[in-house]
Design a protein around this nucleic acid. Sequence first.
RNA 1: UGGGGAGUCGCCAAGCUGGUUAAGGCACUGGGUUUUGAUCCCAGCAUCCGAAGGUUCGAGUCCUUCCUCCUCAGCCA
Length: 594
Amino acid sequence: MSSEKPPIPAASNFIRGIIDRDLAQSTNASRHWAGSPGDAAHHAAGNADPAKIRTRFPPEPNGYLHIGHAKSICLNFGLASDYNGVCHMRFDDTNPEKEEQEYVDSITEMVQWLGFGWDAFGKSHLYYASNYFDFMCRAAEALISAGLAFVDEQTADEMRITRGTLTEAGKNSPWRDRPIAENLQLFRAMREGKHADGSMVLRAKIDMASPNINMRDPAIYRIKRAHHHNTGDKWCIYPMYTYAHPLEDAVEGITHSICTLEFEDQRPFYDWVLERLANAGLLAHPLPKQYEFARLNLTYVVLSKRKLIQLVEEKHVSGWDDPRLPTLAGARRRGYSPEGFRLFADRIGVSKADSWIEYTILEDCMRETLNNSAERRIAVLDPIKLVIDNYPADQSEDCFAPNHPLKPELGKRTIQLSKELWIEREDFMEVPSKGFFRLTVGATVRLRYGYVVKCTGVEKDAADNVTVVHCEYLPDTKSGTAGADAIKVKGNIHWVSTSHAYTCEIRMYDRLFKDPHPGQGKHEDGRDKDFLDDINPNAAHTINAQLELSLKDVKPSDSFQFERHGYFVADRKDSVAGKPVFNRTVTLRDAWQK
RNA sequence: UGGGGAGUCGCCAAGCUGGUUAAGGCACUGGGUUUUGAUCCCAGCAUCCGAAGGUUCGAGUCCUUCCUCCUCAGCCA
């Protein structure tokens, strides 16, 4: 944290523009907040809201969070914190058939992991839509009483047919003009469990000829006998998202309700519900406003819930926290950092234009944050033996390696040098390619933090593979000593002493898909591609590497830079005391390989 | 063919109610520093804003027409 750069002012975006305008015009200044969610009367009894704005992150607890959610989380919580407001953590749990406690636990854990919380102004702001079911029912009755909703007994199929099409108006339901009293009595009967699942729904009465299909008398309550993770078996009717969401926002005093583009068509209904209920006296002005931004698309990644489920269920990955998966749980295991995600969110911005972010942007954000935080260590991933012929066989000596080149205050550690070392196989080339400046017979390189050595020859096996590289060291060139730089070398390779190293399992992860747009386009024979066809079969392989001894006792989730390789994290699940397993988070940039 | 959106450099993305040379980041290119071919530093990188007309002293910003893409017909969210 010591070499923190000055904070970059948050980039301007259209939502900040809206908030700036609202603040300048005091659009929301008259709001009262009673300290807990509630209707107009409840809040009227409270004080002026100390929060300048209220946003919310409203996941349905029916799956695991992924990188796309991280964008929304950073947006909503980030805005709240920048503008001296609050972001409510709210579970949008209106469909009990799909929702489970396991998901609410995992979601809260990951939001906090990303660095956000919901305590503000002395209060926790963790809410459940299901806690508003009583109010939602009362609001439904208010709509019925105002002649704005009716109980429809058409089947789902009939409703679909009478809804019309994109270009043709729908037809009114035969039940549309029921007397108010009958609607009220039927709705209460629905609620009391006197009607079968699916036998009737409560519908808003708007306009079956609306060019916006969402305004053609949308369903707002359905009968569904299902156990709810929060309310148990209390209810047998549940509100639809489109009706419930504006109420959740209003009851919580949300000022800016930010969602993704596909809800744009829904906004007229969002406003319709709120305005009618304000007229009925249940809700107070100013009402929440919905704004929409473009969801994240990332190259080489799939983010749709359906596809992620398929990857897990068909066992293409090991589980929801497989380090190759773009779930937050997977990314955390992979070693991706919360800081990196926040940087990523800032960097990609927020707009309404559909866009594909290049995956390298995310990787670079991780490199950038990890470069700052991760201590350096030495690991030889693909070992070949290097023998220093003029070094005594029974000798070893201390070499000193800084733990972090940018943070001298983190000190140095000692590494043992001896006659036999492991070096990286690719650091030796018998026939060097153009521009190669590491080891080759006759060449001189520095053993990082040690001596300059000159390559003298190799040993080979029967198949002509190099098995051992020989060299001689130049005694006056030890790092840190006076004459160390007398001999200039371009190459600088890492190493670990064979008698001061240990063998460790490392999982070398790579991108899960080999195509930037998995599943898009066609095969050569003209068939449509499936996203599974683009899976990269080499996205994970395990190696046994030679690591410096200090890498033996590390804590799960500790991240390191293995010098000249990349960032690696001790797996949080499979590491045990004294025997860590490392996951490759991301490689270092490599201008040479290009 | 209806409704709702979006189109500014390879990828993102600022550009308020029209006003000198169209921010910034990533990528890329060149140079410097460097015991990580990493990091870091410096420089370069859209006469042009989906297209064509028009209004104006002046337009990415206003008007007209056109093109492309996304999205909506769950008792899902």
